[in-house]
Amino acid sequence: MKLIIIVLSAIFVNNFVLSRFLGICPFLGVSKKVETALGMGIAVTFVMALASVMTWVVQFAILIPLKIEYMQTIAFILVIAGLVQFVEMVMKKTSPTLYQALGVYLPLITTNCAVLGVAILNIESGFNIIETLLNGVGGALGFTLAIVLFAGIRERMELAPYPKSLEGFPIALITASLLSIAFLGFSGLL
């Protein structure tokens, strides 16, 4: 039961993008088309699941036994950067089609603060390794849901008339605000 709550909470109630403000850069940057948004979502899901588990292992197998918890930020960002590079190389060798589809988004993920954010949140919440994995996957699915919905709205807005000073980021942010209000409705879910 607790596990289901963790996943639902990560996807809907505490949606990473719309209620925790994590991963806004890719959310605004690669949301002009639904297909690219979906590609980004899948790449993030993949990396976030791996990164959650890896950073958890680093924290409990290296940092805590050696009593160097203050190195957490440096260690985690290095793990994530290395992981992204590794995933990119493996994907290139084993699945060229997937690599073609996700290729451009993979390097961008290193600076996606949702990945480092979920790693730190997992440790702060005192999750065990299974809860960590589920929180990572749930958070990433929430990210995917938000970015795909947002891209769908933006595709339709291309044709809508609005004032010139709202072009580009302002109208996108106002749209995101409305989407965020919609997600506030989930807050009574759990």
Partner: peptide, 21 residues
């Protein structure tokens, strides 16, 4: 609503628009 998450997006969007204008 302004100190809840939607307010963050809304104020930021309007602030950029104002800055541009």
């Amino acid at each position: 609503i302004l100190i809840l998450p939607p307010g963050g997006f809304l104020v930021y969007g309007l602030a950029i628009a104002l800055f541009n204008k």
